[in-house]
Design a protein around this nucleic acid. Structure first.
Length: 559
RNA sequence: UGUCCCAUGGUGUAAUGGUAACACAGCGGUUUUUGGUACCGUCGUUCUAGGUUCGAGUCCUAGUGGGACAACCA
């Protein structure tokens, strides 16, 4: 029994403190509140794992709430994509909610605010309102419409609602304090008119509530106990509380907003707007391009839900600016795939090997273990014959002792097969090796139990029988940006740092068993890395995405 | 010329006034029919200055550095 105290992150600490003072355990309720205006990315994944993770930890409900108050930007297809991403990550929401479901309640409360003298209709242009708002260091001034009568406000707000008033003619503002040091408290707009069709309410509403007026009230309606958001919303907390003060009823749960730092990932951007630009400018093929840090992109790249959850849990949550090295993400996917991915053989940069003492026209089917990390994974047969492919970089005419691979006059083990010895090679007019002639030791077959098969040979190579090989398209990826923090420099557009060589498409030669794989299946190409079957795969051509390479301590030595 | 937030190894996070630790990355080694995995070892940390305290990474003050705030976006 472990007695060591479990360490809590600051979010859990807040909940624990509340549990000791103000909240009962069954009052806990969380939510994940995306706006359906784009696809979810790895930053959202952290937030999803945080909120749903708290739900699991405290056995509390977690709602999926779409913050859909802006019909100009939001679309049903994003709602669908978000739901599928959250499910794929492995989480179940208690209720599927929409801020738009609360439009009537929000409207009723707005009427109440007007009647209480806490809100007024402003009929100025947005420019004039912005001008009067002042700056962070300069106080704002009151709108000339600030003291309209309640009757007048009610009448005008009614015109906004019916659509009688032209779009943009008026807004409803909360009457707070134009001199506040917090700009958000300077009579924030709470309703604007938008004569656009909403993906759920259609044309029923001509007025749409703003984020600040909607979010906390939605939390209140859903009895969300803790509303966690990113640090940029910290100054909104004062407003969040002010709105709650107006409508909160004694004795009911009062939601609490708390903020954490968003997670930044190195060599990419984590911002819907910037990701959208990559899509629009054609830098990538879409939101689910395997180079994108979107959940759908990572999925297509070959990441597993487990690996993303492990990543999110591992990096924790804090309040300071951060830049998480992408190697941490790569670690989590290697860690998981190492346990679950079958080992197979594929040669991506081939050079021909002829086993001169092996009979022509013969094929032997050899046993190959699927995954040495998992006995239950079983084994399969791989064909061996006289002519093989190995990787070009696995052969050198001569090399020093540190080169454990094939060199003239020396032996290597072919994985799951025989020990071979390089005798000679043929080069083209440029001096490039195009064919290697080897001899094999017939007694050395893997697993045969002979003395020769037990011989220790330093190097082991993967290979593929040429006549049985399956040509496949392989997409190799590099970081999308050349800079660790492409958007850190305000002087330089992040697009300047796009890596022009982030995608390389090649043809590889795989062992025939790969034909059986389905889209999204994951395998390790032995000695190379983890690969997954892309959805672009057709009946005639399989397409693989490289998820991540194996750790390669040789690559560093070899320069 | 404001208000607010933040500051622990290269990176991220913990230490809840009482021996600064864990993971990743790096480096070295053992094992290995993957130069993978596993295992072992190693490097390296409390922004500065004061104060409170028997004792400060933790509390207080100031400074420094970084960040947020001037959408009818969320």
């Amino acid at each position: 029994m472990s007695e060591e105290k479990e360490s809590l992150n600051f979010i859990e600490q807040i909940i624990e403190d509340d549990l000791k003072s103000t909240h009962s355990k069954d009052a806990l309720c969380f939510r994940f509140p995306p706006e359906p205006n784009g696809f979810l990315h790895i930053g959202h994944a952290s937030s999803i794992c945080l909120n749903f993770g708290l739900g699991l930890r405290y056995d509390a409900p977690v709602n999926l709430r779409f913050d859909d108050t802006n019909p100009a930007k939001e679309e049903q297809r994003f709602v669908d994509a978000i739901k599928s991403d959250v499910q794929w990550l492995g989480f179940k929401w208690e209720k599927e909610c929409y801020a738009s479901d609360y439009f009537q309640q929000l409207y009723d409360w707005a009427i109440y605010l007007i009647k209480e003298g806490k809100a007024y209709v402003d009929s100025q242009t947005s420019e004039a309102i912005a001008e009067q708002k002042g700056t962070p260091t300069k106080e704002g001034v009151n709108s000339p419409f600030r003291d309209r009568t309640i009757q007048e406000n009610l009448a005008l707000f009614e015109q906004m609602k019916t659509g009688e008033a032209p779009e943009g003619a008026h807004v409803l503002r909360a009457k707070i304090d134009m001199k506040s040091t917090n700009m958000l408290m300077r009579d924030p707009v709470i309703y604007r008119t938008l004569h656009k069709s909403h993906h759920r309410t259609g044309t029923d509403w001509k007025i749409f509530p703003m984020y600040d007026w909607t979010h906390g009230e939605s939390d209140y309606i859903e009895r969300v106990s803790h509303s966690f958001c990113t640090l940029e919303f910290l100054p909104h907390r004062e407003l969040y509380n002010w709105f709650l003060d107006q409508i909160h009823e004694e004795g009911t749960l009062r939601p609490k907003q708390r903020e954490f730092a968003r997670r930044n990932l190195s060599h990419t951007v984590v911002s819907k707007r910037k990701l959208a630009r990559l899509v629009e400018d054609g830098v990538v093929t879409g939101w689910d391009d395997p180079r994108m840090p979107t959940i759908s992109g990572l999925r297509r790249r070959g990441y597993t839900p487990e690996s993303i959850r492990n990543f999110a849990d591992g990096i924790g949550v804090g309040k300071r600016d951060n830049l998480i090295d992408v190697s941490r993400l790569e670690f989590s996917v290697r860690d998981h795939l190492n346990k679950v991915a079958d080992r197979v053989m594929a040669v991506l940069d081939p050079v021909k090997v002829v086993i001169t003492n092996y009979p022509e026209n013969e094929t032997e089917w050899l046993d190959a273990e699927n995954n040495q990390e998992d006995e239950a994974a079983g084994s399969r047969k791989v064909p061996f014959s006289r002519e093989l492919y190995i990787e070009k970089e696995d052969f050198r005419e001569e090399a020093n002792k540190k080169f454990f691979r094939l060199k003239l006059g020396k032996e290597v083990r072919l994985k799951n097969a025989y020990i071979i010895k390089a005798e000679s090679c043929i080069k083209d007019e440029n001096g490039e090796v195009i064919e290697i002639h080897c001899t094999y030791d017939p007694d050395s077959r893997s697993g045969s139990g002979t003395e020769a098969s037990m011989r220790k040979v330093k190097g082991t190579l993967h290979w593929v029988s040429i006549k049985d090989a399956l040509p496949v398209e392989v997409r190799l990826y590099d970081r999308l940006f050349t800079e660790a923090a492409p958007d850190a420099n305000k002087e330089v557009d992040f697009m300047e740092y796009v890596n022009p060589n982030s995608l390389e498409v090649i043809t590889g030669y795989a062992e025939p068993s790969l034909k059986e794989l389905q889209v999204e299946d994951k395998v390790q190409f032995q000695r190379l890395g983890y690969f997954t079957v892309d959805k672009d795969t057709t009946a005639d051509k399989m397409v693989f995405n490289k998820t991540v390479g194996l750790r390669d301590s040789w690559a560093k030595l070899d320069d």
